[in-house]
């Protein structure tokens, strides 16, 4: 177990090193930030000074070396545009994205898995067909369109819910959260719903496929032959046996949604990190892009690590390997 953890951490370090290099080179290739930093009429002297100040006159490998050195000391640089530390900028926006993502992914999981299990348990029933119809819609209709329809229906036509923004927030652990106030919850509902539909569809399909497969196995037959009730069989056998793919997808979706909830955040003017990264790409704000992508890689590695630990907890056969 300890060797497993050490091995995973070592792998994570390698991935981080590779990612940081790729990100650095990729961002380097997309344009000269000096054009953004300076007014077109700046003198050659100011130009030279600025270039030197940001170290842009150094060779590429030296710039990368300095970047890595600073990152290791917790300094991801300053935003060109906002002229403040990038970490502050990102962590200011992160709670908004975090609560939106968690609401969407957890909601999709908590609702999707029982629906999927039902659809897999009684595949011929009318309810199961409805559930599958919902999942087809969730899969095939684009997120931005559903977002717009939600706004038009619930905000514009019915006027029940606000169309955008975070609403009132309350402070918890020194961070502002929307879900703690009634008004904030109202603001959270539509974007979370919008973001969760695809994941809901995914969870339904996974849980359904797993349940259908497990219900036909001898494990379930044997459990039935010992007189166990269907509820016991679903709770203790089926749920445990289908949980590995569900945990995998949960982790992947959590990571990718945290990193790339851009569309929904834009439609609902949700002040999260997704909007920040889009703005920084448009203004060629290199430190923000680099720092953001590095943090996202770190996030994925961390989530995958937790998912791997869950595998071991869920399936004892993995403890050996």
């Amino acid at each position: 177990m300890v060797s497993f953890i050490v091995q995973r951490i070592a792998q994570g370090i390698v991935v981080m090193a590779a990612m940081s290099l790729l990100v650095f080179l990729g961002v380097y290739a997309i344009g000269n930030p000096i054009d953004v930093l300076l007014a077109p009429d700046a003198t050659q002297e100011i130009r030279t000074q600025t270039i030197a100040r940001y170290g842009l006159d150094r060779p590429l490998y030296e710039q990368y070396g300095q970047f890595v050195w600073r990152v290791l000391h917790g300094d991801l640089g300053r935003s060109f545009v906002f002229n403040m530390p990038v970490t502050d900028l990102i962590f200011m926006r992160l709670p908004a994205t975090l609560e939106l993502t968690l609401a969407a992914v957890l909601g999709a999981t908590v609702i999707g898995i029982p629906l999927g299990i039902y659809a897999g348990y009684r595949p011929q029933s009318r309810t199961a067909r409805w559930i599958m119809a919902i999942s087809v819609i969730g899969f095939s209709v684009p997120t931005f369109w559903i977002g717009l329809v939600l706004i038009l229906t619930f905000a514009v036509t019915l006027g029940w819910l606000p169309a955008g923004g975070r609403g009132e927030t309350a402070n918890l652990f020194g961070i502002e959260w929307s879900f703690l106030t009634g008004n904030g919850l109202k603001h959270l509902l539509l974007p979370a719903l919008n973001l969760s539909l695809f994941k809901l569809a995914l969870m339904i399909r996974l849980a359904r496929a797993g349940t259908r497969e497990i219900m036909l196995t001898d494990t379930v037959r044997f459990a039935r032959a010992t007189g166990q009730s269907e509820t016991t069989i679903i709770r203790h056998h089926v749920l445990r046996l289908i949980s590995i793919p569900l945990v995998t997808v949960f982790g992947l979706e959590l990571g990718s949604t945290l990193a790339f909830a851009v569309v929904t955040e834009t439609i609902f003017s949700w002040p999260g990190v997704g909007k920040l990264i889009i703005d920084s790409i448009q203004s060629l704000d290199r430190p923000v892009m680099v720092a953001y992508l590095v943090l996202v890689s770190l996030l994925f590695i961390a989530i995958n690590f937790v998912v791997d630990l869950c595998y071991v907890a869920l399936d004892p056969r993995m403890q050996k390997g």
Partner: peptide, 10 residues
């Protein structure tokens, strides 16, 4: 087949 009847994760 007892490998199929017993639940592998319990």
């Amino acid at each position: 087949d007892p490998a199929m009847t017993l639940n592998p994760v319990l």
